[in-house]
Amino acid sequence: MTTMVGYLRVSTEEQATSGLGLGAQRDTIQRYADAHGWEVTYYVDEGLSAKSMDRPQLQAALTRLHVLPKRRDIDGIVVAKLDRLSRSVHDFSGILKLAAARKWAVVAIDLGVDTSTPTGKLVANVMMSVAEWEREVIGERTSAAMQAAKRQGRHMGRVSVLPRPTGDRLLELRATHTLAAVAAQLNAEGLSTALGEPWSANTVAKVQKRLRAADTASSDEQGARMASARGL
Score class of each variant (00 low, 15 high):
M1A: 14
G6W: 01
S11A: 07
T12A: 05
E14Y: 11
A16W: 12
T17S: 05
L20P: 00
L22I: 04
G23I: 00
G23R: 06
R26Q: 09
I29N: 04
Q30W: 02
R31W: 00
R31A: 04
Y32Q: 09
A33K: 02
A33F: 03
V40H: 02
T41V: 15
Y43K: 09
V44F: 00
D45P: 00
G47R: 02
M53E: 05
D54L: 09
R55W: 13
A61G: 10
L62Y: 09
L62H: 08
L62G: 06
R64N: 08
R64I: 03
H66E: 07
H66V: 02
L68T: 15
P69V: 07
P69H: 11
K70S: 10
D73W: 11
G76E: 00
G76C: 02
G76Y: 03
G76H: 02
I77Q: 01
V78D: 03
V79A: 07
A80E: 03
D83L: 05
R84D: 06
L85I: 03
S86V: 04
R87L: 08
V89E: 03
V89R: 03
H90S: 07
K97S: 04
R102N: 13
V106D: 02
V107A: 10
G112R: 11
D114R: 07
D114C: 10
S116G: 12
T117L: 05
G120Y: 11
V123H: 11
N125Q: 09
M128P: 00
A131D: 03
W133Q: 05
V137T: 02
T142Q: 01
S143A: 15
S143P: 01
A144M: 06
Q147N: 14
K150W: 03
K150D: 14
G153E: 10
M156T: 05
G157N: 07
R158T: 06
V159T: 12
S160F: 02
V161W: 08
P163M: 01
G167N: 11
G167S: 09
L173N: 13
L173C: 09
A175D: 08
A175L: 07
H177V: 04
A183E: 10
A184K: 09
Q185M: 07
N187G: 03
A188M: 13
A194N: 13
A194W: 10
A194H: 12
G196Q: 10
G196C: 06
E197C: 01
E197F: 13
E197H: 09
N202P: 00
T203D: 02
V207K: 11
Q208H: 15
Q208R: 14
R212V: 13
R212K: 14
R212L: 15
S218F: 11
E221Y: 10
Q222W: 07
Q222H: 11
A224N: 13
M226F: 14
A227I: 01
S228T: 12
S228N: 12
G231Q: 02
L232G: 13
